[in-house]
């Protein structure tokens, strides 16, 4: 791969390649099955396998069932803490969101690039994907807010204790911060995932180039870069979890706004 060219393109890992169905269309829009779609499929299958393993419904859970129940309990507790009793009905959505992002992030870190010709693809490093997830979350917030509170939902933009003479400013700021939410939600995940993967690729190019450059370069640049890569890989696993958690947490906080206004 890159070693033969003597150069690593840190952006190549984000390249989308159609696998089949390049000419599939829906109403004129291309829906080719790409490597991105393939990894979404893998994510769903693995997630299904994971949750299905916890469906034995035993009174005394085994390890696998315990693991699955830990995740559902984690989401349940998070919604209970942030939204309250009404939060329980959002568990299926937040659980799907959290686990889907978590599995996608972690699968993108699996070093299956070691097998020649196979590349991992992290679809959460594409803002088309994170954007759709953010829009779904934001739509739920809007739908719940207007369905529950009607036009009173707009009172969300007037926090408690706003002085009357600031009425011309505060709601505008609140409105902007509200409208920015889907963008910040989408960009945060996309940037975090992309930055980590780019950094790993850049460091790997340091390793390869310095070793090609000779033993001295290899020892003084290649070895430290390699150590740094190992450390950053560990950090990336943490980031994969944290970003999934942040996405789910912020969504639940926004749902709380919609459920309870302020």
């Amino acid at each position: 791969m890159a070693a033969e060219e003597g150069k690593v393109d840190p952006m190549k890992q984000f390249q989308i390649e159609p696998l089949f169905g390049s000419n599939w269309d829906i109403a004129g829009f291309n829906i080719a099955f790409t490597n991105s779609a393939l990894w979404m499929a893998i994510t769903v299958v693995l997630l299904w396998v994971f949750v299905a393993g916890g469906m034995k419904r035993e009174l005394v859970p085994g390890r696998w069932q315990m693991a699955v129940e830990t995740f559902t309990g984690f989401i349940d507790d998070m919604l209970e803490a942030n939204v309250g009793k009404e939060g329980r009905k959002y568990v299926p959505y937040i659980f799907s969101l959290f686990m889907f992002i978590l599995f996608a992030n972690l699968l993108g870190l699996v070093p299956i690039g070691l097998i020649p010709g196979v590349h991992a693809f992290t679809f959460t490093s594409h803002f088309t994907v994170t954007g759709v997830l953010a829009v779904i979350s934001f739509s739920i917030v809007l739908a719940v807010g207007f369905w529950k509170h009607g036009f009173k939902f707009f009172s969300l933009f007037v926090p408690h204790g706003t002085p009357l003479w600031l009425m011309w400013l505060i709601p505008v700021i609140e409105l902007i911060s509200f409208l920015v939410r889907p963008f910040s939600l989408a960009l945060r995940l996309f940037v975090a995932m992309m930055a980590g993967h780019v950094l790993l690729k850049v460091l790997s190019s340091f390793v390869i180039d310095s070793v090609n450059g000779g033993a001295v370069f290899g020892a003084f640049i290649g070895v430290p870069s390699m150590l740094l890569m190992i450390a950053i890989s560990a950090l990336e696993i943490l980031v994969a979890g944290i970003q999934a958690y942040v996405f789910a947490l912020l969504t639940s906080l926004y749902i709380n706004d919609a459920e309870h206004l302020h």
């Binding site: 829906i26 829009f29 291309n30 790409t34 991105s36 779609a37 088309t128 759709v132």
Partner: peptide, 8 residues
């Protein structure tokens, strides 16, 4: 690719 991404 956006339509394929969104669709899938």
């Amino acid at each position: 690719t956006w339509s394929s991404q969104v669709f899938w």
